[in-house]
Amino acid sequence: MGLLNLFNKSSPSLLRLPAGSFTVDRSGALLAGTLPSSFPSELAREIARNILTSFREAAAAHLPLSELVIHYPSLKISARELRGGAVIFLTPKTSDSPLN
């Protein structure tokens, strides 16, 4: 077995942005989702943290929001407020995807 391992070259991975959704509670803990396991949960939590903070601080500034859409050139993040938590959709954009 050790001999065979000599020919194994570890293959570096490139993080692919998944299309999918996940739900977080008000503390930012992941409840459920359709994201592949290859997508780091730490990144999902970081996205959720930013979304929840934005919803919370908007409400504190008397500008309550129920939905947020964040546009990047190659990714759209949509989030819907859900009793203090949120359901978050990730939609990678490619040259052949529709504009919105």
């Binding site: 500008l63 929001l65 546009h71 050139p73 190659s74």
Partner: peptide
């Protein structure tokens, strides 16, 4: 890429 825009609905 660079952030383009944020849209909020309330």
């Amino acid at each position: 890429g660079q952030l383009e825009q944020i849209e909020g609905t309330g």
